[in-house]
Design a protein around this nucleic acid. Structure first.
Lengths: 212, 212
DNA sequence: CCGCATCCCCAAAGATACTG
DNA sequence: CAGTATCTTTGGGGATGCGG
């Protein structure tokens, strides 16, 4: 039995990289940040990973306690979820990259993860709950006293104050600022139950354009 | 010419990993966090890396603008230095790892990087400058109004208020809390010019034991 | 010496096929 | 759908060598 390949350093950074530094590992974890997913979901979200590598990563990450398999779903453990600051730091650094700009289609997960990462508001007056029903997934967002306190895939217990129903493409335009929610409702590309301008506020709270 | 291997995703996290996600890449950057180093220094600090991989990483990291070669020294660019929050996040996560505890000798760089990462003090009264002369390297630390404002390898312009001269091993014990600076001076394992208790305060400001 | 390039070998990743 | 099995390709680890 060959022993696992490691950097063999006492440094906590090297240790972290021993755990999540393998190719694809952090991207697998990223896919679970908004909630549990199944094997097929991960494979679809990570084009190019190949089934054997995905299996390997899932096994490794579970072995060290970053994720746990429950039935057919893989979900982050509490400790795995604590990688959040790492993702935040990487994302904040990455968007400032002078290297060839990012291109390609963004999935809906990425949009909401971007909201979580770049959410900016300290308005203590602002409290609200939002639900976005898209083509495939539902996202639930909770803002309390100006802080984004929770953001998950899938509907939550109690109903949200504002419910937005639209398709993935329109959602992208809404997050990108190319379209306002009022405009989308006007052209019947979105339906809203609740306060439209309140939901618009949430869309504006992720200053993606301001960062680049 | 085969085009570079990339995750090919628009996500800023994936993009970051395209830049620093290759094996050894982040550890090379880590070695430069306290100041420029030469090829041989890096090779010595990264046992097992192998010369070709090190060359490759240095070339790649320079190509994307994370580091720059000046004469024989490799140093971080401003953007490269902005990876600091990533290292902080990784270190904070890594020390909480439930996996087999870190073992092995820690270099002096790691000790001072630990100080930078886990420095905890908000005492606005505290301002001071410190120089540590060890076996091979000199480290310069600056605290202003309770904040660690600078920490570099090599001596700085003006002389520090407190100068500690000792060997690497003793320094490790000092940071680990196994030995007090007063005790080290007593047993002639360290020599101090300036306020001993002031320097001790700095050593105590990195609550390594409190973290685990 | 130091800073690499070269070579060889193995382990990990990519691609595809296949099975419960 | 959820993976395993197999094959090929690529990249990393380690030793050696060579030029400045």
């Amino acid at each position: 039995m060959p022993e696992k390949r490691t950097y063999g350093q006492a440094c906590p950074i090297a240790h972290s990289l021993d755990l999540v530094g393998e190719r694809w590992a952090l991207l697998v974890v990223r896919e679970l940040r908004l909630g549990p997913r199944r094997y097929g979901d991960l494979q679809a979200a990570l084009p190019g990973i190949g089934p054997s590598v995905l299996s390997q990563r899932l096994r490794d990450l579970e072995a060290v306690g970053i994720l746990r398999k429950r039935g057919k779903e893989y979900g982050l453990t509490e400790w795995g979820a604590e990688l959040d600051p790492v993702f935040r730091a990487l994302a904040h650094w990455g968007v400032r990259s002078p290297v060839v700009p990012l291109e390609g289609a963004v999935g809906t997960d990425s949009m909401f993860l971007g909201l979580r990462t770049f959410f900016g508001s300290r308005d203590p007056q602002w409290t609200g709950s939002y639900e976005f029903r898209l083509d495939r997934d539902v996202y639930r967002v909770e803002v309390r006293e100006g802080e984004l306190v929770s953001l998950w895939r899938g509907r939550s217990g109690e109903p949200a104050a504002v419910v937005v129903e639209t398709d993935d493409a329109t959602m992208g335009e809404l997050f990108g600022g190319a379209l306002t929610l009022a405009g989308a409702v006007e052209s019947e590309r979105a339906a809203v139950a609740g306060d439209v301008s309140d939901a618009q506020r949430l869309l504006d709270a992720s200053p993606l354009s301001a960062v680049r």
